[in-house]
Design a protein around this nucleic acid. Structure first.
Lengths: 168, 168
DNA sequence: ATATATTTTCAATAATTATTGAAAATTCGA
DNA sequence: TCGAATTTTCAATAATTATTGAAAATATAT
């Protein structure tokens, strides 16, 4: 397979992959494009390669910057802005985990705390079923939260070695 | 907070949560409703409680069954079908991990294998950047695959205890 | 300061995805 | 076997989400 075709496939399936994880297709595609590009790119480069509009490109670059996955690069003597993606996949994963933890897991755990305190007699099976479910989700969620925290702090090599040892 | 309100909140935020993870709102809400219900429910019960149509209810129940999260229950002397959700959250998580691994991670790893074999001189920086990215994603993906496999096989108590020890 | 290049915004529109509801199919009791 | 209850399907429609493109804002060179 030629490089051009391989890139196309990578970008397109990274985009499809993204949509299964609540990330919009274009954002994932821009990210994929930058991941496999040796040099920083301008918005115009991306527009051309992905066949998308200027507005779309701009909005999704901004979003990738918000996620901490892409950053602006200043090239001396150039008027235009250039962008580049973090290439260290371990860092990319950690960054995504960090953001999703903050945006989704933590608010969910807070809600569950509130819901656990529901009024009513625990001997009522409706109350009991509700509280039991909430408590068990919370328990698992808290453990996930801690584990992810640790992972965010870990070095890739240490993490992989640990996993390898335990789950061999 | 009253039980009814707490249930509403739980169902609605579980639905919103789902949409961030590529799961449609209704499917997540039905799942939430069943999770907190002490007894099996009929389609009509769900339609009423969630204010959704018969077709929508039916399609999403089927989908939950495909995911292995809900099952049909036969109540003797009843004509209608009843449904119930797995209440053990650890089993629920394992089931979701298992399915997503099969549906998404494994196909992605297969694709990456194919893409790694791209033609071209590795001294060309474009080829090199592409292959490097593909290889590093693959490496991490394979480790994730193994780790998740292990997790799927593990008992909750063992898994949590292990995590606790290591990542304390 | 002005002209020009570049980025950003956002209302309009398109594309995608979810939902409805009624008809068809199926199940099951009598 | 028939008929009512129940489930399933799916074309039509609604709701949501993504994308465009042109105007406005901003930045920079001269």
């Amino acid at each position: 397979m030629k490089l051009t075709e391989a890139k196309q496939q990578f970008i397109s399936s990274w985009g499809a992959f993204g949509t299964h994880w609540g990330i919009n297709r274009t954002m994932a595609q821009i990210h994929a494009l930058l991941l496999v590009s040796p040099d920083p790119m301008t918005q115009d480069d991306m527009m051309e390669q992905l066949n998308i509009s200027r507005g779309n490109t701009n909005m999704n670059i901004r979003e990738l910057i918000n996620w901490g996955l892409v950053e602006r690069v200043l090239l001396s003597g150039e008027r235009k802005e250039y962008f580049t993606a973090e290439k260290d996949i371990w860092k990319v994963v950690k960054q995504i985990v960090k953001e999703r933890k903050k945006r989704e897991l933590e608010p969910m755990l807070q809600l569950l705390d509130k819901l656990e305190a529901v009024e009513g007699d625990k001997r009522d099976k409706h109350v009991k079923a509700f509280v039991d479910t909430v408590v068990s989700i919370k328990k698992l969620g808290r453990q996930a939260d801690k584990t992810l925290d640790m992972m965010i702090r870990a070095e890739e090599s240490w993490f992989l070695a640990t996993m390898m040892k335990f789950f061999k």
